[in-house]
Every structure is written in structure tokens, then in C-alpha cells.
């Protein structure tokens, strides 16, 4: 019990003193996971829409792949992204292994299937009659798609939250492709693991509390966006 209390006290002081090292780690965590979520939304929402609205041979297979990808183990992603980005790997010439860019790529790979699947579910459950209705009102393709996306926004924001929650909490891929380099690729999850290894349980607890607070803050923001807009209409 003493340990938990010490950790909470430590977390409070770290936040109170705005410890620059911890702030840097927090900022990097948000930057990497935020960018990765953005990338996965830009990839996942269009792909999810296409899968939801079109019918072609092999579609079911792709949908099952996306659903399967929701459970993609971060360490597996980390390993494969590392292999590709190492100096000896096919993309070694980019020289981005052990950089935030590498972490963003790995996290985007983890989050994209989540966004695709959530988008697919959100768009597909819209009544097909709405589509006919919009077409009958003379909507062109762009207007049609825009209206469908608006209709599916609850689900789409859930997709964003799922993606963000998935990547901000993962440690395996970040550790492998980022390397937990101080001031560069050290994020809250990898820092927590390191502090445990150092025996600094109180700092580790403090970091975990900060991580939870950060994740909750972002999710709460997105939730308020999701719920507020759905009350208007």
C-alpha cells in the first residue's frame, strides 16, 4: 500500500513541478501517438468507407483481414517494421530506425485496422434507404459520401478513440523501433518499463498515472465532441 501511495505522491509532485524531462516524454507520447492516429484515420476511414459501400469479389476476405488486424500484436508489428527499417533492411536507406518517424509508422500500422473496422461497421449500419434518399434528392457522389460520413460520425469518432487508445498504450512496437532513446523516442510506456527495471517503482507508478490521465484527457475530449454534435441533430 505504501508503494502505491508513494507513487501517487510522486506523480503529484512531478506534475506540480512540471519536471521538464517528464514533460518532454509526455509531449513526445502525444505527438507520436497523435500523428499515428491521424495517419491511421486518413488511411482507415476511406478504406473503411470503400469496404462498407462497395461490393466486389474478395471483399469479405479483406473485411476479415481488417477485423483480424484489430488484434495485431504490437511486438509483431514492431519486429516487422524493425526488419524493414534496419540498415540492412529494404528501407534501411531512409535511416529512420530509432526515430519518432519509425514509431509513427509502427503505431499507424497497429491503429489502421482498428479504424478501418470501426469505420466499416459505422458506415455499413446506416440504412441503405438513406443512400437512396440522398440520391433521390440529387446528391452528387461527394455530397452523398459526406452525408453518409456525417451520419456515421458517432462510429467514426469511436474509430478514432479506439485507434488512439490502441497506440498510446502499446509498448512492444515503440520499444523495438524507437529504442527508448532519452529525449528522442522515450514515450510514457517505454519509460515506465525502464523505471521498473531500474527499481524506481514510485516513478513508474507516477508515469503510469500520468499516462492514464493523458489517455483519458484525449478520450474525454473526443467523447465530448462525439456526444455534443450528436445532440444537435
Amino acid at each position: 500500500m505504501q508503494l502505491i501511495w508513494d507513487g501517487l505522491v510522486q506523480a503529484f509532485f512531478i506534475l506540480l513541478n512540471l519536471d521538464p524531462e517528464v514533460l518532454e516524454v509526455c509531449w513526445l507520447t502525444l505527438k507520436v501517438s497523435g500523428t499515428a492516429t491521424l495517419v491511421s484515420v486518413l488511411i482507415g476511414v476511406p478504406l473503411g468507407c470503400i469496404l462498407a459501400l462497395s461490393r466486389f469479389p474478395g471483399r469479405n476476405f479483406l473485411v476479415s483481414l481488417a477485423n483480424f488486424g484489430m488484434g495485431l500484436p504490437p511486438v509483431v508489428v514492431g519486429l516487422w517494421v524493425s526488419i524493414f527499417l534496419w540498415r540492412s533492411g529494404p528501407f534501411g536507406s531512409l535511416g529512420i530506425i530509432y526515430t519518432p518517424t519509425a514509431m509513427i509508422i509502427a503505431q499507424a500500422v497497429i491503429a489502421s485496422p482498428l479504424v478501418i473496422s470501426f469505420t466499416l461497421a459505422a458506415v455499413q449500419q446506416i440504412s441503405p434507404r438513406l443512400r437512396l434518399h440522398l440520391l433521390a434528392l440529387g446528391a452528387n457522389r461527394r455530397q452523398l459520401l459526406w452525408n453518409l460520413i456525417k451520419e456515421a460520425r458517432l462510429g467514426l469518432l469511436a474509430a478514432v478513440m479506439a485507434g488512439f487508445g490502441g497506440v498510446i498504450s502499446e509498448v512492444g512496437a515503440s520499444q523495438m523501433v524507437g529504442g527508448n532513446i532519452k529525449g528522442e523516442t522515450r514515450v510514457l510506456t517505454t519509460a515506465t518499463v525502464m523505471e521498473v527495471n531500474k527499481g524506481n517503482f514510485d516513478v513508474a507508478i507516477a508515469l503510469s498515472v500520468i499516462l492514464l490521465a493523458l489517455a483519458y484527457g484525449v478520450t474525454a475530449l473526443l467523447t465530448s465532441l462525439q456526444q455534443r454534435r450528436s445532440n444537435y441533430e
Partner: peptide, 16 residues
Amino acid sequence: MFKKTRYLSLAILFVF
């Protein structure tokens, strides 16, 4: 009918 969006999304992906 959604060919256009498909191209669009591919383009976005590529740009990214």
C-alpha cells in the same frame, strides 16, 4: 460508382 473515392483514398495514402 465509388471508383472516384477509391482513387481519392489511394491518392491520400500515397501522399502520406
